[in-house]
């Protein structure tokens, strides 16, 4: 990473809030004029109703779509479909695989991610749109909270960590430190932490940066207090 250049790279559009999914998808038709949508998803999700909000909304909009499991040898069947938009919907691994598939396409093909789990879902190759709809995300379990805190903590040391990512990370920490346990709040915290992390590591691995002291100050804590809370 160049000493003289830091960046804040985010998805072009990030939509969130319970129920945002159909509204955001409507944009595909009416503003972006996408007609053929490839949905890459976890094979396991395909066996449940979990995808219904996505496929149902696309069906209502009259958009052609095809659902393909992200494991297995997908690229050639994806190509045959000739999508003008790819939606990756699933866990972090699925989004990662989908990002790989997307690489094989023209940059004009629009890329959307819809996470269904909490945790490092935004580290995938930069999507054009992210839709975080609470109704799509599984109930967080006990490990979710420590996962979020770990992500926020790690973001403080990314080579590209800055005041921008610090703002997100601190916000995520203060939600968790405030004692939040419900899905809505944890989802908020997770998105913030993941965004901070994704941006802080946009250029690659760890750098010499450590914003822990700034984070502590911003939270009104001493460095020791913060470190204790984070570990």
């Amino acid at each position: 990473m160049n000493e003289n250049l830091q960046s804040f790279l985010v998805p072009g559009k990030l939509y969130f809030k319970q129920g945002c999914l159909p509204v955001a998808l409507a944009e595909l038709k009416y503003e972006l004029h996408k007609n053929r949508i490839l949905i890459l998803t976890d094979a396991a999700l395909m066996l449940t109703d979990a995808l219904l909000p996505v496929t149902g909304a696309l069906y209502d909009l009259g958009i052609t779509f095809s659902v393909i499991p992200s494991d297995g040898n997908t690229l050639s069947s994806c190509r045959k479909f000739e999508p003008d938009c790819i939606i990756a919907c699933g866990s972090a691994e699925t989004l990662q695989v989908a990002a790989g598939v997307r690489e094989g396409f023209d940059p004009k093909v629009y890329f959307i991610t819809i996470p269904t789990t909490l945790g490092k879902t935004q580290t995938a190759a930069r999507p054009d749109m992210v839709i975080v709809d609470e109704d799509m995300v599984a109930e967080p379990d006990e490990t979710a909270i420590s996962g979020i805190l770990a992500t926020a903590r790690d973001s403080l040391c990314g080579a590209n960590a800055s005041d921008y990512t610090l703002g997100f990370a601190v916000q995520a920490m203060s939600i968790i430190f405030g004692g939040a346990k419900d899905k809505t709040s944890l989802l908020r915290a997770a998105s913030l932490a993941e965004n901070a992390f994704a941006i802080a590591y946009a250029g690659g691995g760890k750098g010499g940066v450590d914003l822990t002291a700034d984070a502590a100050e911003a939270l009104g804590l001493t460095v020791e207090e913060l470190t204790a809370k984070l570990n």
């Binding site: 003289n4 830091q6 559009k13 809030k17």
Partner: peptide, 18 residues
């Protein structure tokens, strides 16, 4: 609640001399 969004330019570069 209304759908909310967060949108920024896709690329923001900063740092003295960038």
């Amino acid at each position: 609640e209304n759908m909310l969004w967060f949108r920024t330019p896709q690329k923001v570069y900063f740092k003295k001399g960038c």
